[in-house]
């Protein structure tokens, strides 16, 4: 008798539940076959898609090599230091140094001798801890320092980037968004083929 009662309540419960499901129009999901098909599709897709860049955009794009041989005017030559940009020779243009690391981005404005005039980092900007090491923080920092540089009456700059990190591209983009005219982009990442022994690898 008691067991019957239990069963009846259980049935009621299940019917109520099914009603609920019917009311909300929730479909039962059988995804296995579809998911398998997706995986196969994905594999095919990945085979056709070019390799992903690990850190910086365009790093693995080897196909467009003809462009480098055709466009010679995008690279500097012997006359470059004396070439005029807005009336200033290239060698006397102020430099925007961007120091990128995985955890921060520091941007300094120096004159052509290398004396620091302005400095701004993601930490100064108000981003703290892990938020410092984001592309958004780098872009905000670049826009702030860019406007400050413009206030000083400097409009044309050359950019020197050092290091790899999330802020590498977005800092340059931010400088451009602030209204500065970027003449050239230089990479000065310190790379050695016989370096002193680096620190031990992180444990994972």
């Amino acid at each position: 008798m008691f067991s019957k009662q239990i069963i009846s309540t259980f049935q009621k419960f299940t019917s109520a539940q099914s009603g609920l499901i019917a009311n909300h129009n929730v479909r039962s999901l059988f995804l296995t076959s579809q998911r398998q098909r997706e995986v196969v599709d994905r594999r095919e897709m990945l085979r056709s898609v070019p390799k992903l860049d690990e850190g910086s955009a365009g790093e693995k794009a080897f196909e467009v090599d003809a462009l480098i041989h055709q466009k010679t005017d995008i690279f500097p030559d012997a006359d470059t230091p004396n070439r005029l940009f807005n009336g200033i020779p290239f060698k006397n243009l102020p430099i925007m140094n961007i120091r990128v690391s995985p955890n921060n981005t520091i941007i300094t404005m120096t004159d052509d001798k290398g004396a620091v005039k302005l400095l701004r980092s993601c930490g100064i900007e108000g981003f703290k801890n892990t938020r410092k090491g984001t592309n958004i923080a780098a872009q905000a920092t670049a826009i702030t320092i860019g406007t400050k540089v413009l206030e000083r009456g400097i409009k044309t700059v050359r950019v020197r980037v050092r290091g790899l990190g999330p802020g590498r591209m977005s800092a340059i983009k931010g400088l451009q968004m602030s209204g500065l005219e970027i003449v050239s982009i230089t990479d000065s990442t310190p790379v050695s083929w016989n370096p002193p022994r680096p620190r031990k690898a992180k444990k994972l």
Binding site: E59, A61, M169, K173, Q176, I182, S184, T186
Partner: peptide, 19 residues
């Protein structure tokens, strides 16, 4: 390791440099 920016197209210059 220097690339000039042409027509204010910074991204293209960055791509060439990174490549």
């Amino acid at each position: 390791r220097t690339v000039f920016v042409q027509n204010n197209d910074v991204e293209a210059a960055c791509r060439v440099l990174n490549r």
